[in-house]
């Protein structure tokens, strides 16, 4: 605490939060600020939360937001369950798997969505320019790299293969970090690579050729990832959750309407070269979770054996989402 005023404010915030726990959930945040930590991944997908923080959408709702970066969707789940993070960003398939293991998670609002048009999306399966593979069906019997196995990448690539008439169980998947994929493709270590931006632009500039748009093939306007919280948080601090969700929705809408500012903020928290930032395809940031597409991902997860039980999509989505 550098200033007495700040100390006073945070004392007020503390009082306000205790009051909220006591049951009065009306306007606890008005008097002060709630300290909130959100778990994110330093990738293109989370640009809205960085932008929203910069624009003051969180602070004007009494949320003092700290963004903590982790390595993947699955990494932030334990953080939210343990209460270390109040909110986090994670892909839908990870959350469905977590929910299948009885982790009490709830989706609050959309995170990032597919553009929904083949040829224009932010993720695709690419092959080397001179590869004989020309369609998703040709991936059968080939080695395809994904960033995480048993997750949204391989299930949606299998959906592409299935849609094209191939046998998805005969596609061999191997795990590689996205940044290593363009080189692995060039050196024929893998036959195809599922990449998202900025690695899609990067590999195409090196002569790679997209053969399947897995997010587009899986479902129309697929919701890829979302912001989520724990059931405990939703029960104990409904007002804070509501304010966070509102701020998040405002951030998403702002990001969707201001692509130039998204490109600008990417330079602050990622290491993507400036020229790639200028060229690459940005995803869509709608505020609505596309429930039908979450159901599709749930069906795909069940079909591919990622979850044991039939996923209860309704239980994962909160009323706010």
């Amino acid at each position: 605490m550098r200033r007495p005023l700040l100390a006073l404010l945070s004392a007020a915030a503390l009082l306000a939060t205790t009051a909220a726990c006591g049951g009065s959930s009306s306007d606890s945040g008005k008097g002060g600020t709630d300290k909130v930590t959100a778990g994110v991944i330093p990738i293109v997908d989370v640009a809205p939360i960085y932008l929203g923080k910069q624009q003051g959408f969180f602070s004007e709702r009494g949320i003092d937001l700290t963004l903590q970066t982790g390595s993947g969707g699955a990494a932030s789940v334990p953080g939210v369950v343990s209460g270390q993070y109040q909110f986090a960003f994670g892909n839908v398939t990870s959350l469905l798997v977590a929910r299948d293991k009885n982790l009490p998670l709830k989706i609050l609002t959309n995170g990032v969505s597919s553009i929904g048009v083949a040829g224009k999306d932010f993720g695709a399966v690419v092959v080397k320019g001179n590869s004989p593979i020309t369609s998703a069906e040709d991936l059968v019997g080939k080695k395809v790299s994904v960033n995480n196995l048993q997750n949204i990448g391989d299930t949606t690539v299998r959906a592409s293969v299935r849609k094209a008439g191939g046998d998805p169980s005969k596609v061999g998947f191997v795990e590689l970090p996205f940044p290593d994929m363009p080189a692995a493709l060039q050196n024929n270590r893998v036959d195809a690579a599922w990449v998202v931006e900025p690695f899609l632009t990067q590999s195409i500039s090196q002569g790679a050729r997209p053969v399947a748009w897995n997010f587009v093939d899986a479902a129309p306007n697929l919701t890829v990832a979302t912001y989520f919280t724990s059931e405990r948080m939703l029960k104990e601090k409904p007002d804070l959750v509501k304010r966070f969700t509102e701020a998040m929705n405002e951030s998403l809408a702002y990001a969707d309407a201001h692509p130039d500012e998204v490109r600008k903020i990417l330079g602050t928290y990622t290491k993507i070269p400036a020229e790639v930032i200028a060229d690459m395809t940005l995803p869509k940031y709608p505020t609505e979770v596309n429930r039908a597409s979450v159901q599709t991902l749930a069906d795909l997860a069940q079909q591919d054996g990622l979850v044991k039980n039939k996923p209860d999509v309704g239980a994962l989505l909160s009323e706010l989402g």
């Binding site: 699955a74 798997v97 293991k101 790299s145 795990e175 290593d180």
Partner: peptide, 21 residues
Amino acid sequence: MFAASSGLGFTIVQFQRGFAI
């Protein structure tokens, strides 16, 4: 833990990511 599709380390990481603690 890198680029694998079999092995003990691979299996442990897969369990961890699938919350099969």
